[in-house]
Nucleic acid binder design. Structure first.
Length: 230
DNA sequence: GCGACAG
DNA sequence: ATCTTGTCGC
């Protein structure tokens, strides 16, 4: 991949960079029929600065994992709401490059354009990969919405200053909605359709569940090894 | 000043 | 994000 920018930034510089990168995000319709769907996730210990990032690639039809990769390291950028990608993406990109099979589309644990400067982690990753990405967050960062209906597939718009930035989607009856937003190169309706196609009996998309389980397993395995050394 | 605040 | 077991409701 072509490096987009330096990662060694202070929070103040990061916010300025987000404004320029956001202008490059593609929110238009693309005829997308992914054959493979990837998901990324990051795991750490309580208050830990050592992160384990992972990517899992699934067959879009069966949602069964067909490839996976991870990367681990110490990170200095703190968790700051609105700047999550600067903390997590460097290791995610490292893991991504270790994949044998690159996915047609990537699901991200977090927001896409449903972000104060329209550059959540999913959009930021999409620009780096120049690939379609979708943000699927468990909780809201910004925006207002009315509670979606009770049935699976019901959804309402997530709105910020009159602009639709995403959707609150009921992926499972009687469960809290997930917050879906455009990452890059996929429009909102297609994003919602893809999220629905990945969530039959669970609140979160299967690839997201798979990678979450995977990065936790890898991290605990690494922790066990380092305990043995030390 | 106060509350909100992805992971 | 993370730890941890049971418990409650459909």
């Amino acid at each position: 991949m072509i490096p987009l920018h330096d990662w060694n930034l202070a929070p103040k510089e990061a916010r300025i960079l987000q404004q320029t990168l956001a202008a490059r995000v593609d929110t238009s319709f693309h005829p997308i029929a992914p054959r493979t769907i990837g998901a990324i996730d990051v795991s750490s210990e309580w208050h830990g600065s050592e992160l384990t990032a992972g990517v899992v690639v699934c067959d879009a039809k069966t949602l069964a994992p067909i490839d996976r990769a991870w990367a681990h390291g110490r990170v200095s950028f703190p968790y700051v709401p609105g700047l999550l990608s600067f903390r997590e993406l460097p290791l995610v990109l490292e893991a991504y490059e270790r994949l044998t099979i690159k996915p047609d589309l990537v699901l991200c644990d977090g927001q896409g354009i449903a972000h104060p400067r329209r550059l959540g982690i999913a959009s930021h990753l999409g620009l780096w990969l120049d690939a379609p990405t979708i943000g699927c967050a468990k909780t809201r960062l910004i925006g207002e919405y009315s509670e979606p209906g009770p049935n699976r597939g019901d959804w309402t718009s997530l709105v910020d200053h009159g602009e639709t930035i995403g959707a609150a989607v009921r992926t499972r009856p009687k469960c809290k909605p997930v917050y879906v937003s455009i990452g890059h190169k996929v429009n909102l309706q297609s994003s919602i359709n893809i999220i629905m196609a990945c969530t039959a009996r669970y609140r979160l998309p299967i690839p997201a569940r798979s990678v979450h389980e995977y990065v936790n397993r890898v991290r605990r395995s690494l922790q066990a090894d380092s305990a043995f050394e030390g």
